[in-house]
């Protein structure tokens, strides 16, 4: 208990922060990846994340079962997804605009209905202990991992495989890359996109449940702090590949811990800038790795049209 880790605490805190904090990024970015692969953007996942967080907390509190809360969060996310999927596929309606309106609408509904659930304490999701081998309490705590996070980590390669090797994955890519060809194949563009958006919103809703039921583990109106919007941007950064979404989410989850961890060992200036480090880092990586010569690899052809 008394052991202070000193400087070793910084990498440990970042590693622990990665394991704790990256799941919302992961779920939202996987959901957005699925959505964008079908050729539509859903910026509204910030609103979906909030709806998910609120409904999960509310249901977990009312029924006493956090897992029921997780399911509800997914279903609530799907409802927003249906609105987005239907609206953004109307002629002349821009999906980015619908997304921004959905952020406002979704967060409005979440805040409106969530008022009575700020005070009470809902039962949190259980965690798996992977740190029993260590006698350091810090390591034990860092290796407490939510099964929900492991689920997200498992979904990433599955989704990668799904896109690459299944017929449904091919349909989605076809719809996203060249809708005309897809139509010629006899695929309903509307249905495929709707399904992708709804499934993507389901994942984002689950991400919200992770926020309110596991980490930081409570419901209030500032709970997301823009994570949903950031996760949507991560998908472009990850070049629409689910595995890279996983890596990017881990990077962002870990980066959230940098500022506090550095302060706790005595680097106590420039913390605003340290806290902005994930954004600066992402921008630098993009500047270094992008090239004007080729369009982004993996960018769905119909995106933004």
């Amino acid at each position: 208990m008394d052991q202070a880790l000193g400087w070793w605490g910084v990498p440990l805190a970042i590693a622990a922060g990665t394991l704790r904090g990256s799941a919302p990024f992961l779920f939202v970015s996987l959901g957005e990846c699925l959505t964008e692969k079908s050729g539509k953007i859903n910026l509204g996942l910030e609103g979906t994340l909030l709806i998910g967080a609120m409904s999960a907390y509310a249901i977990a509190y009312l029924t006493g079962s956090p897992w029921l809360g997780v399911i509800t969060a997914g279903v609530a996310g799907m409802m927003l997804g249906v609105i987005h999927g239907w609206l953004s596929q109307q002629p002349r309606v821009n999906d980015v605009a619908v997304g921004i309106a959905m952020i406002i609408f979704g967060s409005g509904i979440a805040f409106f209905l969530g008022k009575p659930f700020i005070q009470p304490s809902a039962p949190p999701l259980p965690a798996l202990q992977f740190g029993a081998w260590s006698n350091l309490p810090q390591v034990q705590s860092a290796l407490q991992i939510s099964p929900l996070f492991l689920l997200g980590v498992a979904i990433a390669p599955l989704m990668q495989w799904f896109f690459r090797s299944t017929r449904w994955g091919l349909y989605i890519r076809a719809v996203g890359d060249s809708p005309d060809a897809a139509k010629a194949m006899g695929i309903s563009i509307f249905k495929v996109r709707m399904l992708c958006i709804v499934a993507g919103s389901f994942l984002a809703g689950i991400g919200g449940a992770y926020l309110s039921l596991y980490y930081p583990g409570s419901w209030n109106e500032r709970i997301s702090g823009g994570q949903g919007l950031m996760a949507v941007a991560l998908v472009i950064f990850a070049r629409w590949r689910p595995m890279q979404c996983l890596y990017a989410s881990l990077l962002f989850g870990g980066a959230q811990a940098i500022g506090p961890a550095l302060q706790s060992v005595g680097i106590d200036s420039y913390y605003y800038l340290f806290n902005a480090s994930p954004y600066i880092l992402t921008l630098l990586i993009m500047i270094l790795t992008c090239s004007p010569k080729r369009t982004l690899n993996g960018a769905p052809g119909a995106l933004g049209q």
């Binding site: 309106a101 406002i104 609408f105 805040f111």
Partner: peptide, 14 residues
Amino acid sequence: PDATVLVFQGLVFL
């Protein structure tokens, strides 16, 4: 509640 205006705004724009 204060969130009502957000709902209003969201509905109008949708």
